[in-house]
């Protein structure tokens, strides 16, 4: 499965709900305001680092850029993709669950 998260973890519980129920071996892609979860040194960084043990974790580069988050601020192990990479993830990981 591919999970997309488009909410800041400081605003909504999408990240927590996703991590609680996402089947192992899938991928999580942070998009839109969800990208705030991918920065190092936040109160949610530990949760995302924990997720990296069971899931591949990606972030949409154009949404990082729009928000002024440099790639060197990202938690280690998170890969940056563009929209083309987003399409590849949908193809590779099967059913898509959008945590709106």
């Amino acid at each position: 499965m591919l999970h997309t998260i488009n909410k800041s973890p400081f605003d909504r519980n999408s990240l927590a709900s996703c991590l609680r129920t996402a089947p192992d071996g899938g991928a999580i892609l942070f998009i839109e305001d969800g990208v705030y979860a991918t920065a190092k040194g936040t109160t949610f960084s530990g949760d995302v680092e924990g997720a990296l043990k069971n899931q591949k974790v990606f972030v949409l580069g154009p949404d990082l850029a729009a928000r002024g988050i440099a790639e060197d601020k990202l938690i280690d192990g998170i890969s940056v993709v563009d929209y083309s990479g987003f399409v590849d993830l949908v193809e590779e990981f099967g059913t898509v669950q959008s945590w709106l």
């Binding site: 488009n6 998009i31 839109e32 563009d82 929209y83 083309s84 987003f86 399409v87 193809e91």
Partner: peptide
Amino acid sequence: HQASDTAYQFAKAAIEKGH
């Protein structure tokens, strides 16, 4: 919301890749 923007960019990228 950004939803329609993201959907549009996704759709465009998918088409460009031949999907």
